[in-house]
Amino acid sequence: MDNYKGTIKYIGEIAKDTYKMGIISDLKQIKAGQFVSVLCPNKTLRRPFSASGFENGILSILFKLRGEGTEYLKNLKYGNNIDFLAPLGNGFDIKNKKSLLIGAGIGIAPMLFLKNELNKRNIENYLISGFKEVGEIVKGSDETIVGGSVLDNIENLIEKFKPEIIYSCGPSIVLKLVSELGIKKSIETQVALERVMACSIGVCRGCVIKLIKNNELTNASVCKDGPVFKGDEVVW
């Protein structure tokens, strides 16, 4: 982890209230599932965002307007400076297995990065994403569900595609259902969680969740031990 001063290479609204930002900096590497913590000078705390890609030294993030922090970011322009901590968290543990990727809402961001990585390694994959309405669709999936839940027809998809591993990112309720589905179908799941964070490097214990490991209940910080966890270990 280091503190980087980057410059904005591009920024634009790619879907309703959803922005994509490209940042050039000295950052050398970041994995799919890892995140960055961006300084928003009008707010006390930094804002965490999953990397949605990293190509030619340009880090991309996606963000949805949620409040004053993202409102500040939205108004940044090409050439503006941006202060961020990166790379943070553990990232997905990529397996050479037929992969199903499930992205719900803005949770698609790390899924796009992961899909790209899987493609590079010639690992067969299928990305299904879900959005509340047509205007909110972020492109790049193999299948997109609008309205309803991204999981509405998931059992049929699993029957047809026969994944050996499922990766997912989105609201807790979706990740919980994905994890339960994995247990039911005996498929490994890796889920990327989102939490309000303060330090984003594991010291303040502000974003702690419970895990069950070897029948023992333990604490894990989403920012340092996660944000990616084995779905069957998370206590929802």
Binding site: K43, T44, L45, V196, M197, C204, R205, G206, C207, V208
Partner: peptide, 8 residues
């Protein structure tokens, strides 16, 4: 929840 951000 363990963290809640407020103004300042």
């Amino acid at each position: 929840e363990r963290i809640f951000e407020v103004q300042g």
